[in-house]
Simulated assay, not measured.
Amino acid sequence: MNKAMMTAAIMLAVGLAGCGKKDAPPADDKAAVDTMATPAAPMAAIPIDPAKPNACDRLADVTLTAVIDKATNALKISGTANAPQLGFAAALQAGPLDKMNPPNQVVLLRANAPAAGGAAVTAVPLNLDIPHAQPAYNSVRVVCPGVKDIELKVG
């Protein structure tokens, strides 16, 4: 296995190791919330279950940007996608970096569909920070099986 693939595999393993479920704080029984009067807050990202099939091909209107954050030396990819129903989990995962000069970064788009749910289109956030950014990138290629790749220019 070449050095780039080994590094990508280690980064993926380290990233997945930190994806453990955290305990939710206890519910506050004293405060009743009127959901009809409260404006909808942005939905928090639902964690991806790698054991479930990838449903990224069901996402629509995927809009992403990629920038190098000079302060943290990280490649930051962020944006949104429209899920066909509530409860969709979506995330970006760092893939391999090729050996071109400047290199191309591959990013995997992952999504898990809920078992059942309403048919309301829901915007889901997509964010990924890849530490130790290269000085420049030719592109970031976001891949999802069965869908045309998304090419991002790093700005």
Rank of each mutant, 00 (worst) to 15 (best):
A66M: 07
P53W: 09
V121T: 15
M6D: 09
K52S: 15
N54S: 03
L64R: 07
G18C: 10
A17L: 11
P84H: 05
I150G: 09
P53L: 08
D57G: 14
V14I: 15
A4F: 04
G18E: 09
A115N: 02
K153R: 15
N104W: 00
A71F: 01
V107W: 00
A113H: 06
M43F: 10
L97F: 01
N54K: 03
A55M: 12
R110T: 08
D98W: 02
P114D: 08
D23M: 12
I46F: 02
D29L: 13
M11W: 06
P26F: 11
A31F: 04
C144V: 00
K148A: 14
D69Q: 06
D49G: 07
P25G: 08
K52H: 10
N112G: 06
A113F: 05
S78I: 05
D149I: 01
M1I: 14
D49I: 09
M100Q: 14
M43A: 14
A37V: 11
L16V: 13
A31S: 08
D69P: 07
A60D: 13
M100I: 00
I150K: 15
P145N: 13
G118I: 01
D69A: 13
P26T: 15
T38E: 13
A31I: 15
K21H: 07
A55K: 07
R110M: 15
K70I: 10
L12V: 11
V154F: 08
D49A: 12
R141K: 13
N54T: 07
A74T: 15
A4N: 09
N73R: 12
A133T: 08
A45N: 11
I150N: 09
I150L: 14
K76C: 01
V124L: 04
V140F: 06
N138M: 04
M5G: 07
A37G: 00
A55H: 04
K70G: 06
L126F: 09
A9C: 06
P50N: 08
P25K: 11
A81E: 03
A66P: 07
P131F: 01
A133N: 04
V33E: 14
